[in-house]
Design a protein around this nucleic acid. Structure first.
Length: 103
DNA sequence: AGAGCACTGATCC
DNA sequence: GGATCAGTGCTCT
């Protein structure tokens, strides 16, 4: 088990239509290195199992996969979120606090 | 070994 | 209320 594996394990526990934050994942893993969580997510070896698009920043913004890398596979993940019932506007989650899953 | 990163909370203006 | 600093753990050079 690697650090990344634990991240995905927690991530898979997030129900559809909900989102979680890097912080929540880090806390569950018992670490404070939230950046390391992001590192693991961008690696994303468990692509369909690890819904990295379902992970957002603590303030509800989508995260680094927008604005500078738009036009990549990332934007499709945003569409997936909306498909799951999560609304994203201007790179920000709508009703973020209501769909936030903290386990 | 050193810099960087898909972050966050706390300071500093 | 925005910009900057420090902390954190892992990956790449």
């Amino acid at each position: 088990m690697s650090f990344a594996d634990e991240v995905y394990k927690v991530l898979k526990d997030v129900p559809m239509g909900k989102v979680t934050t890097y912080k929540a994942l880090g806390e569950k893993l018992g670490t404070k290195a939230y950046r390391a969580v992001g590192q693991a997510l961008k690696n994303n070896p468990y692509a369909p199992e690890a819904p990295c698009h379902r992970v957002v920043r603590s303030d509800g913004s989508i995260g680094g996969f927008m604005g500078k890398i738009e036009g990549t596979e990332i934007e499709r993940k945003i569409a997936i979120l909306e498909s799951e019932g999560v609304t994203v506007v201007g790179g920000r989650i709508v009703d973020f606090n209501k769909i936030l899953f903290e386990g």
